[in-house]
Protein backbone atom coordinates (compact mmCIF):
# COMPACT_ATOMS: atom_id res chain seq x y z
CA UNK A 1 0.00 0.00 0.00
CA UNK A 2 2.80 2.41 0.82
CA UNK A 3 4.82 3.74 -2.08
CA UNK A 4 8.57 4.05 -1.77
CA UNK A 5 8.51 7.32 -3.68
CA UNK A 6 6.05 8.94 -1.28
CA UNK A 7 8.08 7.72 1.68
CA UNK A 8 11.23 9.19 0.10
CA UNK A 9 9.55 12.59 -0.36
CA UNK A 10 8.36 12.71 3.25
CA UNK A 11 11.58 11.27 4.63
CA UNK A 12 13.64 13.83 2.78
CA UNK A 13 11.56 16.78 3.95
CA UNK A 14 11.82 15.74 7.60
CA UNK A 15 15.21 14.05 7.73
CA UNK A 16 16.87 16.86 9.67
CA UNK A 17 14.16 17.02 12.36
CA UNK A 18 14.08 13.23 12.58
CA UNK A 19 17.83 13.45 13.21
CA UNK A 20 17.19 15.94 16.01
CA UNK A 21 14.58 13.58 17.50
CA UNK A 22 17.12 10.74 17.41
CA UNK A 23 19.71 12.92 19.19
CA UNK A 24 17.18 14.07 21.82
CA UNK A 25 16.09 10.51 22.60
CA UNK A 26 19.71 9.44 22.74
CA UNK A 27 20.46 12.23 25.21
CA UNK A 28 17.31 11.44 27.20
CA UNK A 29 17.98 7.72 27.55
CA UNK A 30 21.39 6.11 26.80
CA UNK A 31 23.57 9.13 27.49
CA UNK A 32 21.75 9.97 30.71
CA UNK A 33 21.98 6.31 31.72
CA UNK A 34 25.76 6.38 31.30
CA UNK A 35 26.05 9.58 33.32
CA UNK A 36 23.64 8.37 36.02
CA UNK A 37 25.55 5.08 36.30
CA UNK A 38 28.69 7.10 36.95
CA UNK A 39 26.82 8.93 39.67
CA UNK A 40 25.67 5.61 41.18
CA UNK A 41 29.25 4.35 41.12
CA UNK A 42 30.46 7.43 42.94
CA UNK A 43 27.80 6.85 45.62
CA UNK A 44 28.61 3.14 45.90
CA UNK A 45 32.33 3.83 46.18
CA UNK A 46 31.90 6.51 48.83
CA UNK A 47 32.81 4.84 52.16
CA UNK A 48 30.54 7.28 54.00
CA UNK A 49 27.39 5.77 52.39
CA UNK A 50 25.92 2.58 53.90
CA UNK A 51 24.27 -0.18 51.84
CA UNK A 52 20.73 0.87 52.82
CA UNK A 53 21.34 4.37 51.54
CA UNK A 54 22.84 3.02 48.31
CA UNK A 55 19.87 0.67 47.76
CA UNK A 56 17.45 3.55 48.20
CA UNK A 57 19.10 5.33 45.30
CA UNK A 58 18.41 2.46 42.90
CA UNK A 59 14.68 3.25 42.68
CA UNK A 60 15.39 6.91 42.15
CA UNK A 61 17.92 6.03 39.47
CA UNK A 62 15.38 4.18 37.29
CA UNK A 63 12.65 6.70 38.05
CA UNK A 64 14.93 9.59 37.10
CA UNK A 65 15.94 7.89 33.91
CA UNK A 66 12.52 6.84 32.63
CA UNK A 67 10.43 9.39 34.46
CA UNK A 68 9.66 13.03 33.73
CA UNK A 69 12.48 15.06 32.27
CA UNK A 70 13.00 18.35 30.50
CA UNK A 71 14.01 16.35 27.42
CA UNK A 72 10.41 15.16 27.09
CA UNK A 73 9.38 18.74 26.42
CA UNK A 74 11.89 19.02 23.59
CA UNK A 75 10.84 15.62 22.24
CA UNK A 76 7.20 16.78 22.16
CA UNK A 77 8.22 20.02 20.42
CA UNK A 78 10.22 18.05 17.83
CA UNK A 79 7.30 15.72 17.17
CA UNK A 80 4.99 18.70 16.67
CA UNK A 81 7.49 20.12 14.17
CA UNK A 82 7.79 16.81 12.29
CA UNK A 83 4.00 16.60 11.87
CA UNK A 84 3.93 20.30 11.04
CA UNK A 85 6.54 19.88 8.31
CA UNK A 86 4.76 16.89 6.80
CA UNK A 87 1.41 18.65 6.41
CA UNK A 88 1.49 22.35 7.32
CA UNK A 89 4.80 23.25 5.71
CA UNK A 90 3.90 21.17 2.68
CA UNK A 91 0.76 23.29 2.27
CA UNK A 92 2.94 26.43 2.47
CA UNK A 93 5.11 25.24 -0.40
CA UNK A 94 4.70 23.65 -3.84
CA UNK A 95 5.16 20.19 -2.40
CA UNK A 96 1.47 19.77 -1.67
CA UNK A 97 0.49 20.39 -5.31
CA UNK A 98 3.28 18.10 -6.43
CA UNK A 99 2.14 15.28 -4.15
CA UNK A 100 -1.48 15.62 -5.21
CA UNK A 101 -0.52 15.44 -8.88
CA UNK A 102 1.23 12.08 -8.36
CA UNK A 103 -0.68 8.88 -9.15
CA UNK A 104 -1.72 8.26 -5.55
CA UNK A 105 -4.90 8.81 -3.60
CA UNK A 106 -4.96 11.38 -0.83
CA UNK A 107 -5.58 8.54 1.58
CA UNK A 108 -2.30 6.92 0.53
CA UNK A 109 -0.48 10.24 0.90
CA UNK A 110 -1.84 10.80 4.43
CA UNK A 111 -1.25 7.23 5.53
CA UNK A 112 2.35 7.44 4.32
CA UNK A 113 2.91 10.47 6.52
CA UNK A 114 1.24 8.72 9.45
CA UNK A 115 3.30 5.57 8.93
CA UNK A 116 6.57 7.46 8.59
CA UNK A 117 6.09 9.37 11.84
CA UNK A 118 4.71 6.44 13.82
CA UNK A 119 7.46 4.18 12.48
CA UNK A 120 10.28 6.60 13.21
CA UNK A 121 9.02 7.56 16.69
CA UNK A 122 8.58 3.88 17.58
CA UNK A 123 11.95 2.90 16.16
CA UNK A 124 13.87 5.72 17.82
CA UNK A 125 12.04 5.41 21.15
CA UNK A 126 12.52 1.66 21.51
CA UNK A 127 16.02 1.71 20.07
CA UNK A 128 17.17 4.26 22.62
CA UNK A 129 15.23 2.92 25.58
CA UNK A 130 16.27 -0.64 24.65
CA UNK A 131 19.90 0.47 24.44
CA UNK A 132 19.51 2.04 27.88
CA UNK A 133 18.21 -1.23 29.32
CA UNK A 134 21.15 -3.09 27.79
CA UNK A 135 23.64 -0.59 29.23
CA UNK A 136 22.11 -0.98 32.68
CA UNK A 137 21.81 -4.76 32.35
CA UNK A 138 25.51 -5.09 31.57
CA UNK A 139 26.58 -2.73 34.33
CA UNK A 140 27.19 -3.71 37.95
CA UNK A 141 23.82 -2.10 38.77
CA UNK A 142 21.64 -4.49 36.75
CA UNK A 143 19.59 -5.16 39.90
CA UNK A 144 18.18 -1.61 39.61
CA UNK A 145 16.04 -2.86 36.71
CA UNK A 146 13.78 -4.51 39.27
CA UNK A 147 12.41 -0.99 39.88
CA UNK A 148 11.43 -0.66 36.20
CA UNK A 149 7.71 -0.44 35.58
CA UNK A 150 7.46 -1.11 31.85
CA UNK A 151 3.83 -0.02 31.61
CA UNK A 152 4.27 3.37 33.34
CA UNK A 153 7.79 4.15 32.25
CA UNK A 154 7.86 2.90 28.68
CA UNK A 155 4.46 2.00 27.24
CA UNK A 156 2.69 5.15 28.51
CA UNK A 157 5.29 7.64 27.16
CA UNK A 158 5.64 5.78 23.85
CA UNK A 159 1.88 5.74 23.21
CA UNK A 160 1.63 9.36 24.35
CA UNK A 161 4.24 10.43 21.80
CA UNK A 162 2.39 8.52 19.06
CA UNK A 163 -0.93 10.08 20.08
CA UNK A 164 0.62 13.58 20.09
CA UNK A 165 2.07 12.96 16.63
CA UNK A 166 -1.16 11.63 15.19
CA UNK A 167 -3.21 14.39 16.79
CA UNK A 168 -0.89 17.02 15.26
CA UNK A 169 -1.22 15.36 11.85
CA UNK A 170 -5.00 15.46 12.30
CA UNK A 171 -4.84 19.18 13.16
CA UNK A 172 -2.91 19.60 9.92
CA UNK A 173 -5.93 18.35 8.01
CA UNK A 174 -8.07 21.24 9.24
CA UNK A 175 -5.45 24.00 9.26
CA UNK A 176 -4.05 25.67 6.17
CA UNK A 177 -0.42 26.09 7.17
CA UNK A 178 2.27 25.00 9.60
CA UNK A 179 2.00 27.70 12.27
CA UNK A 180 -1.76 27.31 12.69
CA UNK A 181 -1.35 23.53 12.73
CA UNK A 182 1.20 23.64 15.55
CA UNK A 183 -0.57 26.38 17.54
CA UNK A 184 -3.93 24.60 17.33
CA UNK A 185 -2.28 21.30 18.27
CA UNK A 186 -0.70 22.81 21.39
CA UNK A 187 -3.98 24.47 22.40
CA UNK A 188 -6.04 21.32 21.98
CA UNK A 189 -3.45 19.00 23.51
CA UNK A 190 -3.58 20.93 26.78
CA UNK A 191 -7.24 21.88 26.36
CA UNK A 192 -8.79 19.41 28.88
CA UNK A 193 -6.67 20.64 31.76
CA UNK A 194 -6.49 24.27 30.64
CA UNK A 195 -10.22 24.59 30.08
CA UNK A 196 -11.13 22.89 33.37
CA UNK A 197 -8.73 25.17 35.18
CA UNK A 198 -10.18 28.30 33.57
CA UNK A 199 -13.76 27.18 34.28
CA UNK A 200 -12.81 26.28 37.87
CA UNK A 201 -11.25 29.69 38.50
CA UNK A 202 -14.20 31.46 36.85
CA UNK A 203 -16.61 29.55 39.13
CA UNK A 204 -14.48 30.20 42.21
CA UNK A 205 -14.40 33.91 41.50
CA UNK A 206 -18.10 34.25 40.72
CA UNK A 207 -19.70 31.49 42.85
CA UNK A 208 -17.34 30.88 45.72
CA UNK A 209 -16.91 27.25 46.73
CA UNK A 210 -18.81 25.88 43.73
CA UNK A 211 -15.62 26.43 41.80
CA UNK A 212 -13.88 23.81 43.85
CA UNK A 213 -15.70 20.98 42.09
CA UNK A 214 -12.60 20.04 40.16
CA UNK A 215 -10.22 19.88 43.10
CA UNK A 216 -9.13 16.28 43.55
CA UNK A 217 -9.92 15.48 39.94
CA UNK A 218 -6.56 16.84 38.77
CA UNK A 219 -5.01 13.53 37.92
CA UNK A 220 -8.13 12.29 36.22
CA UNK A 221 -8.30 15.43 34.06
CA UNK A 222 -4.57 15.18 33.40
CA UNK A 223 -5.19 11.70 32.02
CA UNK A 224 -7.04 13.41 29.17
CA UNK A 225 -4.20 15.89 28.68
CA UNK A 226 -1.76 13.73 26.78
CA UNK A 227 1.47 15.78 27.12
CA UNK A 228 1.20 15.42 30.91
CA UNK A 229 1.49 11.64 30.57
CA UNK A 230 5.18 12.23 29.96
CA UNK A 231 5.66 14.24 33.13
CA UNK A 232 4.27 11.93 35.75
CA UNK A 233 5.26 8.51 37.05
CA UNK A 234 3.92 8.24 40.59
CA UNK A 235 0.16 8.21 40.43
CA UNK A 236 -2.27 9.07 43.20
CA UNK A 237 -5.02 7.01 41.53
CA UNK A 238 -4.49 3.23 41.20
CA UNK A 239 -4.34 1.81 37.69
CA UNK A 240 -4.60 5.29 36.15
CA UNK A 241 -1.92 4.17 33.67
CA UNK A 242 -4.59 2.07 32.00
CA UNK A 243 -6.66 5.22 31.55
CA UNK A 244 -3.57 7.00 30.15
CA UNK A 245 -3.04 4.20 27.64
CA UNK A 246 -6.72 4.08 26.73
CA UNK A 247 -6.81 7.87 26.19
CA UNK A 248 -3.69 7.76 23.99
CA UNK A 249 -5.06 4.87 21.95
CA UNK A 250 -8.46 6.51 21.47
CA UNK A 251 -6.86 9.83 20.45
CA UNK A 252 -4.48 7.97 18.12
CA UNK A 253 -7.19 5.95 16.38
CA UNK A 254 -9.68 8.83 16.15
CA UNK A 255 -7.00 11.20 14.81
CA UNK A 256 -5.97 8.63 12.22
CA UNK A 257 -9.49 7.88 11.03
CA UNK A 258 -10.85 11.44 11.09
CA UNK A 259 -7.52 12.83 9.78
CA UNK A 260 -7.57 10.47 6.79
CA UNK A 261 -11.16 11.48 6.03
CA UNK A 262 -10.48 15.21 6.31
CA UNK A 263 -7.22 15.03 4.33
CA UNK A 264 -9.29 13.67 1.45
CA UNK A 265 -11.85 16.47 1.82
CA UNK A 266 -9.46 19.42 2.26
CA UNK A 267 -9.38 21.94 -0.59
CA UNK A 268 -5.92 22.79 -1.87
CA UNK A 269 -7.05 26.31 -2.80
CA UNK A 270 -7.42 27.04 0.93
CA UNK A 271 -3.74 26.32 1.55
CA UNK A 272 -2.09 29.18 3.39
CA UNK A 273 -5.25 30.16 5.26
CA UNK A 274 -5.61 29.63 9.02
CA UNK A 275 -8.36 27.02 8.64
CA UNK A 276 -9.16 24.86 5.62
CA UNK A 277 -12.85 24.54 6.46
CA UNK A 278 -14.80 27.75 6.65
CA UNK A 279 -17.58 26.09 8.63
CA UNK A 280 -15.18 25.67 11.58
CA UNK A 281 -14.41 29.37 11.82
CA UNK A 282 -17.40 30.39 14.04
CA UNK A 283 -16.65 27.52 16.45
CA UNK A 284 -13.01 28.54 16.73
CA UNK A 285 -13.91 32.20 17.00
CA UNK A 286 -16.32 31.63 19.88
CA UNK A 287 -13.91 29.19 21.57
CA UNK A 288 -10.92 31.52 21.30
CA UNK A 289 -12.88 34.55 22.55
CA UNK A 290 -14.35 32.57 25.47
CA UNK A 291 -11.01 31.03 26.51
CA UNK A 292 -9.08 34.26 26.20
CA UNK A 293 -11.86 36.03 28.11
CA UNK A 294 -11.53 33.54 30.96
CA UNK A 295 -7.73 33.69 30.80
CA UNK A 296 -7.88 37.49 31.00
CA UNK A 297 -10.28 37.19 33.93
CA UNK A 298 -7.95 34.72 35.66
CA UNK A 299 -4.93 36.98 35.28
CA UNK A 300 -6.96 39.98 36.44
CA UNK A 301 -8.30 38.06 39.44
CA UNK A 302 -4.83 36.96 40.52
CA UNK A 303 -3.65 40.54 40.16
CA UNK A 304 -6.56 41.83 42.36
CA UNK A 305 -6.08 39.06 44.95
CA UNK A 306 -2.38 39.72 45.06
CA UNK A 307 -2.99 43.45 45.61
CA UNK A 308 -5.54 42.63 48.32
CA UNK A 309 -2.98 40.41 50.05
CA UNK A 310 -5.01 37.21 49.67
CA UNK A 311 -1.88 35.26 48.71
Amino acid sequence: MLNKGLLKIDMRSTSMVLGILAILLFLQYPLRAILELEWLRSIAEDPLNNQQMINSQYGFFIEDLFGPSAFSLFVIATILIIAGMLIGLERNTRRHDFNLSLPFSRKEIFLTKATLGVGMITLLFWLNSGLTLIIIQFSEFSQTLSHLNVLDMMIVPWLSLLAIYMFTLFMGTISGEMISQIVLSIIFLIFPYGFTMLIGIAFTVHMGNMGRFWIGMDEFILAFTIPFHLFTVNHAIDHISIVYIAVSLVVFVLSLVVGTFLYEKGKSEKNGEFLLFQSLEPIFLIGIVACFGMLGGTIFTFFIWHSAGRF
Binding site: N3, G5, L6, K8, R12, T93, R94, F98, S101, P103
Partner: peptide, 29 residues
Protein backbone atom coordinates in the same frame (compact mmCIF):
# COMPACT_ATOMS: atom_id res chain seq x y z
CA UNK B 1 -2.68 9.72 -13.28
CA UNK B 2 0.26 7.42 -13.93
CA UNK B 3 -0.21 8.30 -17.59
CA UNK B 4 -0.50 12.04 -17.02
CA UNK B 5 2.33 14.47 -16.33
CA UNK B 6 1.45 17.93 -15.13
CA UNK B 7 4.35 20.25 -15.79
CA UNK B 8 4.08 23.62 -14.09
CA UNK B 9 6.74 24.74 -11.71
CA UNK B 10 6.83 21.16 -10.45
CA UNK B 11 10.59 21.23 -10.14
CA UNK B 12 10.22 23.97 -7.51
CA UNK B 13 8.86 21.28 -5.19
CA UNK B 14 12.02 19.26 -5.75
CA UNK B 15 14.49 22.11 -5.88
CA UNK B 16 16.62 20.67 -3.10
CA UNK B 17 17.00 17.33 -4.86
CA UNK B 18 19.95 16.34 -7.00
CA UNK B 19 19.36 15.00 -10.52
CA UNK B 20 20.11 11.50 -9.32
CA UNK B 21 17.67 11.75 -6.42
CA UNK B 22 14.89 13.01 -8.68
CA UNK B 23 15.53 10.24 -11.16
CA UNK B 24 15.38 7.66 -8.37
CA UNK B 25 12.18 9.21 -7.02
CA UNK B 26 10.49 9.15 -10.43
CA UNK B 27 11.48 5.53 -10.91
CA UNK B 28 9.68 4.72 -7.67
CA UNK B 29 6.59 6.72 -8.61
Amino acid sequence: KNKVMYVSDRVEALKNYSIQQISSLYQDV
